[in-house]
Simulated assay, not measured.
Amino acid sequence: MLYLCLARPDIADIWEQSPVIRFRDANGQQKNHVPDFLLTFIDGRRLAVAIKAVARVENTGFRDTLRYIRAAMPPEYADDLTLVTERSYTQSAARNAQKLHEFRRTPDPEADAAVADAIGAAPVVTTIAQLVERTGLGGRAFRATFKSTFSGMLRVLDAGDILPSTRVQWEGAK
């Protein structure tokens, strides 16, 4: 889930294991909940995130508990509290986000510039492999092209893992 958040350009800050929220459960007992993440968006909105396995949510009635937590959450803490399970995202989205994180760890301005030039000279719809071929930089260009799908320069047209065969569209050509 962290990689999915890191991949989003609209998230400005991620706080893992943010401060406790004290609430009373259905029996009136004092309880504590620590959201897994507190996300701050670039527009200033804040979202507390609880991450749970679907089986646990269904077996423990956590959705009901979440209502009590949300009701007790101070307005300055976050604008809302949401539940994320493994059904909230696809496995390919998680793999793509993790790969993006790995690719961002090694900046390559030369490959980024070559891909930007290739995008400008390519047909409106092309494949990642065709863009990579235009640059002559092989894997370096693949990583740069992959990153450009998250930066908003390219829009991915195919669902699933982002691969050399993935079709992309230059966003400036709308």
Rank of each mutant, 00 (worst) to 15 (best):
T60K: 11
D112K: 11
N32L: 13
E86F: 02
L137F: 00
V132Q: 10
M1V: 11
D161T: 11
T85N: 07
R155N: 10
E16I: 15
R22A: 12
G120S: 07
S165C: 04
P9Y: 07
R46N: 03
L2I: 08
D158S: 06
V57S: 01
P75S: 13
A7S: 15
D13I: 04
P9G: 08
V34N: 03
I162M: 04
K52F: 08
D43E: 10
P74S: 08
L2P: 00
G160F: 04
M73A: 01
R22G: 08
F23P: 00
L154F: 02
A50P: 03
I162T: 06
L157N: 02
V132Y: 03
E110T: 14
A7Q: 03
R87V: 05
D112E: 13
V49D: 02
P19R: 15
A94P: 00
S165A: 15
L157P: 00
D108S: 06
G172F: 06
F146Q: 05
A122N: 04
A50E: 15
Q30H: 12
I69R: 01
R45T: 08
A93Q: 15
E133Y: 09
P75G: 04
G172N: 04
A97D: 03
D13A: 14
D13P: 00
K99Q: 14
V84S: 03
Y77E: 03
I51G: 09
L4S: 04
V20W: 12
A12G: 08
I119M: 05
G120K: 09
K99A: 12
K52I: 05
